[in-house]
Design a protein around this nucleic acid. Structure first.
Length: 288
DNA sequence: TGCCCCCTGCAG
DNA sequence: CTGCAGGGGGCA
């Protein structure tokens, strides 16, 4: 799935397009994806679209909300011009920059708006979900309740991280970045990119990372995430924004999926190892 | 804390 | 064919 930058890009795109629109009906094609009774939001109007960690919260004017998690391959694509599909196939290059003609075999939920516009939830691997809840209950969902601070919040301080590390003497620094209960929003791509920026090996035990390095790492996390936002997210795999368009961040990785390629700093080679079960890319010469 | 699992598709 | 993929929940 999309990580913080990708989810934020989708959230911004949706916010511009679906706020104020009224839901006419919800077409659920794969039942396990949608939790709750879709009837509850039929006829209601969208009030807000917010991101929390890697999740999206869409709220309606009847005090209900959708909690959407895209996991690895989920997409939320808005189409205003339903019924006029010509723009998707014009020129005979439908999937070069756009997702393939929608709905497709991975479209599991379709929201129909009263003005004819449509919002598609697509997910190749079917790991994602949509939960319909009373708005007051969103903050009580376990996966939200337990989230650590957002990377751009003031709560993310070296003191905070060092207090966590002291309690978890065996956790590696990369696993710390990926653990949503410690800090929320960073995933595998931006964890690797942030550690390269900070010149810290992903294999280091978190408790052994010095305070000055942790400060540098916090700065690098922010820089890496901002870079992802600047390039509109990374579409190494299936990511597209709310318009169905790809991002460009995949063309600007320093280490992620660059195994065997030269390091930007030292001309050494990028190496791939496994940390916490996740593919991990780093420069052994620069990152100590 | 570390594995397995949920799925499908793609590169090697 | 095998291994791998942007996530994370559940289990021992």
């Amino acid at each position: 799935m999309p990580e913080l930058p990708e989810v934020e890009i989708i959230t911004r795109g949706l916010r511009k397009r679906i706020i104020g629109r009224k839901i006419e009906s919800v077409d659920i094609r794969l039942k396990k994806i949608f939790h709750g009774l879709p009837k509850i939001i039929e006829g209601t109007t969208i009030k807000s679209v917010e991101r929390r960690a890697k999740m999206i919260v869409i709220s309606f004017d009847n005090n209900h909300s959708l909690l959407v998690h895209l996991k690895m391959t989920g997409q939320l694509v808005f189409d205003e011009s339903k019924g006029d599909k010509t723009h998707r196939t014009a020129g005979g290059h439908p999937s070069d920059d756009w997702v393939a003609d929608l709905p497709n075999k991975f479209t599991h939920v379709i929201f129909h708006f009263s003005d004819g516009a449509v919002l598609y939830f697509n997910d190749q691997r079917q790991f994602g979900y949509i939960k319909l809840l009373p708005s007051d209950d969103v903050e009580k969902v376990k996966s939200i309740l337990e989230l650590g601070p957002e990377p751009f919040s003031d709560e993310l301080t070296p003191e905070y991280l060092m207090s966590i590390f002291a309690k978890r003497p065996r956790i590696k620094i990369k696993q710390m970045l990926l653990d949503q209960r410690i800090m929320s929003g960073v995933g595998n791509i931006y964890a690797d990119e942030s550690l390269f920026c900070a010149e810290i090996s992903p294999l280091r035990l978190a408790k052994d990372v010095q305070r000055t390095e942790i400060m540098k790492l916090i700065g690098c996390v922010k820089v890496s995430l901002e870079k992802g936002l600047k390039y509109g997210g990374s579409s190494e795999n299936t990511f597209v924004n709310a318009e169905g368009k790809k991002g460009q961040m995949q063309n600007h990785f320093s280490v992620y999926r660059r195994t065997g390629e030269p390091c930007q700093k030292c001309k050494g080679r990028i190496v791939r190892v496994v940390v916490g079960g996740r593919g991990t890319h780093y420069c052994p010469a620069c990152q100590l």
